[in-house]
Design a protein around this nucleic acid. Sequence first.
DNA 1: TCACTAGGTCCTGTCAAAAGG
DNA 2: CCCTTTTGACAGGACCTAGTG
Lengths: 341, 341
Amino acid sequence: MAKSVANLGDVAAAAGVSKSTVSRVLNNKLNNGFSVSVDVRQRVIKIAEQLRYRPNLMARGLTNQRTRMVSVLGGAHALSDMGNIYQTAINSITNVLDNAPGGFDVTVDMSQHAPGTNELPAWKIDGAIILAKCTSQTIEEIKHSGAPYVVINGPADSSGSSVSPDDIGGTELAVQHLIQLGHTRIAYASAPLRHLAGHSSLRDRHDTYVKELNARGLETIKGHEEPFTSAVDYLKSAVITQRATSVITYGHMSALNIMQAAHSLGIAIPRELSLIAFCDEYAASVMSPGLTFIDLGSREMGLIAAEMLLEKIENPEQAQSRNVKIQEKLVFRDTTARPCR
Amino acid sequence: MAKSVANLGDVAAAAGVSKSTVSRVLNNKLNNGFSVSVDVRQRVIKIAEQLRYRPNLMARGLTNQRTRMVSVLGGAHALSDMGNIYQTAINSITNVLDNAPGGFDVTVDMSQHAPGTNELPAWKIDGAIILAKCTSQTIEEIKHSGAPYVVINGPADSSGSSVSPDDIGGTELAVQHLIQLGHTRIAYASAPLRHLAGHSSLRDRHDTYVKELNARGLETIKGHEEPFTSAVDYLKSAVITQRATSVITYGHMSALNIMQAAHSLGIAIPRELSLIAFCDEYAASVMSPGLTFIDLGSREMGLIAAEMLLEKIENPEQAQSRNVKIQEKLVFRDTTARPCR
DNA sequence: TCACTAGGTCCTGTCAAAAGG
DNA sequence: CCCTTTTGACAGGACCTAGTG
């Protein structure tokens, strides 16, 4: 009673030709000196449509060993932070892969895998994109399966490519911007986000802050060493006690907390405090007032990651692994200004 | 040179038994009077591990017509809003399905499908969960494929189940809460979100606001009819001109905008203005001050949706479609208080 | 009854080969 | 023997029915 879906044989029978002919017509295979009469071609196509024929991709994948399926790993933790950069990246990844010749199905794996277990889908995939990180076991599995992979905003070993934002350059831009505006008391507020533990961005942004200030003979503002727990307490210490006139903060969520805290302490932004954060265009666009931010280039990251992956899928032998750094850009808007003191 | 993955035959050869034996051992099939010696069983399992054998699911799916794969559709638009309820729902969906006997792979389809095209993955799936909405063509495809489906926060026709929050009840709770606190001038601020066009929540929340106020002989505050474009202008009209002492707003993003606007207009929350929004626990938890909100129960929605889907997958004949309404709950925190005038 | 296996089945893609002119 | 059009047989990997010693 279950609806039986039409298969190649059904179409062949209905069209009065062999299965091979149907297969070749529908797949447009013109290689081995193959040709069909216009007559047969049209009949086959028409009947396939009538019967709503869709090839059974399990059988297809069984023979040609390709599934045209690309998996995005690490979705569960990467998407847990509100509106973070990975959403934008995923959008551009799907754009590229959807529109690639032949097309790929992009699926995001959302399972929260217990540590030590395998993150790969049970399906054979043609390629993988990893958001920030995955377990070393997963990397092993991917390598063993032979599928190429690209890591976005995280490290890859020699067998895989990576695309990351240049956090060092971005932090330099932020410091330069504030100094050009006339600030000399510049604070750094780190992120309290749990799932970021150990991510290079934490270290890179912080260390560059310290290095840049030291290089210019400026004093760092205490509290930069570790994540703040209360934005109000942080501002009391950094702005009121230590007289910072500007804060560079890890991300848009911490920026939001700092803005709220500044309001409640009666500190005007940007008149009394300049604020700058790392995030992407989308996150910044939904905040008001317009945040001055270091654009991580998430759209570009997704684009490049997808293109590199595509190259490796199409050309497994030839394409080689690369580690690309995306330049971060300063977007000057309403939360930074000359200091008033 | 390409690493060839071990298959059933390889394991069988290495263990010195037949493929059937390996298959049955690994699948624990004890039905048809099948049995194995402890000896063979252990040897097979050990060798399978050594060779890192993983069944080729294409071949498996070919025979038993099940893929143990569940697809979440509508991810692209559902996840575009920062930190919205679907992320939480997806998390509980994956929890349930991962831990189901046998386990399911949950993948979220992220492609932004051109209107009129098919949203289904090319793969046969065992079931689908739809976030808010999908094209009617997709529904047709799912039905034709015979896979069961459940819609979260959206309408389903007779062949599918649905789980939605009770927006009418939730709005009643919000109005009641404000009235109990002593408010009589209650405003409603709708959402400017594009991808929500036509969603029942827009109508339900708005209409219930009007109905509840009318029923109590209270005047509605102008501006409720359509989404605001500028939160500052909205508050000027609703709070300053029309002297509203409280605002019910569509979601956490509009709440955020209103909080920012209130700050910049010098309106203290909750002393001069009470604010209440519809969202889930997670969104509310990252905002400060603690937002009073109507909890949409996204975790529960995901849970129930996954369980209903599971039931239909395991019991295609017996399980019947249901439309479940989740009760919304008021969470009283720091943005609502007695009016001061 | 126990312990195990051969071989057919699912459906598509491919290749060598054959039919028709 | 040519070319064009079409085909049958088989591979691919796991599962299951029927069957063996």
